[in-house]
């Protein structure tokens, strides 16, 4: 499969249809990969594809350094494509200005990342060229089993759990940097007039940051899991993300990353939206 990808990359670069191919190359250590930006047809041999290709490369579209290279082609798994769909929906990129080299994927990571068993986009939903054998989407998967499991805890247990988790946050903002959908040039966390997120190293500010990070991705997060993977202190951020995904799906019948024409749920409303919590 990688041979076909390299061939296509070479062809696109040679013809000048794209100026850069965003893909993966071998990392410095065994079983690691890192993003690579191929701008010359001679370098396509560097491209690789294996189950250690975790990174959601859609993150790089909105980076100025990458954008300045010219029209990109990107190697994208089904989950990565969902991020691209949201970026198109939010007018961050134009679909016709990118080339998606879609790869079918049976899951990444050893053991598999937690998002992989609940994936229903093993074959990307959108691509210009597809590599690998098409995999039919699984039916009847419960995407929020871990959420439901956690919800069985009492409120006190839940509070205690998150309090401990958030207390370890060092506000390095790796979760934000790695997120393909955290594309604001000035993040709310960097604003100091007024000060949205307290900067001192106490849990109170950490709570605010972690709630707002999750909140700003509500109805948008496509569960690529990069935030959780990047977190140096191991906060289970995907659990929060999936809770919000569940909420948006149950309340508004919406799942992000599937339809770029739909209005994002928090920019839309229905008169009959649920309001059981309002007095």
């Amino acid at each position: 499969m990688i041979e076909q990808i390299r061939e296509k990359a070479k062809e696109l670069l040679t013809s000048g249809e794209v100026k850069v191919v965003i893909g993966y190359e071998n990392g410095g250590m065994p079983e690691t990969t890192r993003p690579v930006f191929i701008t010359s047809p001679d370098e396509v041999e560097r491209l690789i594809w294996n189950k250690h290709c975790y990174a959601n490369l859609a993150n790089f579209f909105v980076r100025k350094e990458v954008a300045s290279l010219g029209k990109p082609a990107i190697i994208a798994k089904g989950c990565d494509v969902k991020a691209i769909t949201v970026l198109v929906q939010e007018s961050q990129i134009k679909r016709e200005e990118i080339v998606i080299l879609g790869v079918t994927c049976e899951g990444v990571g050893e053991p598999l990342l937690s998002k992989c068993p609940i994936c229903d986009v093993n074959t990307p939903r959108d691509y210009n060229f597809l590599f690998g054998k098409e995999i039919a989407p699984k039916n009847g998967i419960n995407k929020s089993a871990d959420v439901e499991e956690f919800e069985r805890k009492s409120p006190e247990e839940r509070w205690e759990f998150w309090e401990e988790q958030f207390s370890r946050c060092i506000k390095c903002y790796a979760c934000r940097q790695v997120c393909p959908l955290c594309y604001c040039e000035v993040c709310i966390a960097d604003k100091n007039q007024p000060q949205w997120i307290e900067t001192s190293s106490h849990t109170r500010g950490n709570v605010h940051w972690n709630l707002i990070r999750a909140w700003h991705l509500s109805g948008r997060c496509i569960d690529c899991g990069e935030c959780e993977r990047a977190c140096p202190v191991g906060i289970p951020l995907s659990l929060l993300n999936r809770r919000l995904a569940k909420s948006v799906k149950e309340r508004f019948g919406y799942e992000p990353g599937y339809d770029q024409e739909k209005a994002p749920p928090f920019t839309d409303f229905k008169q009959e939206d649920s309001q059981e919590f309002i007095r």
Partner: peptide, 12 residues
């Protein structure tokens, strides 16, 4: 300067 044109405001 800081607007990233996500179009949320336009939609709401």
């Amino acid at each position: 300067v800081t607007c990233v044109h996500c179009r949320n405001c336009i939609r709401v």
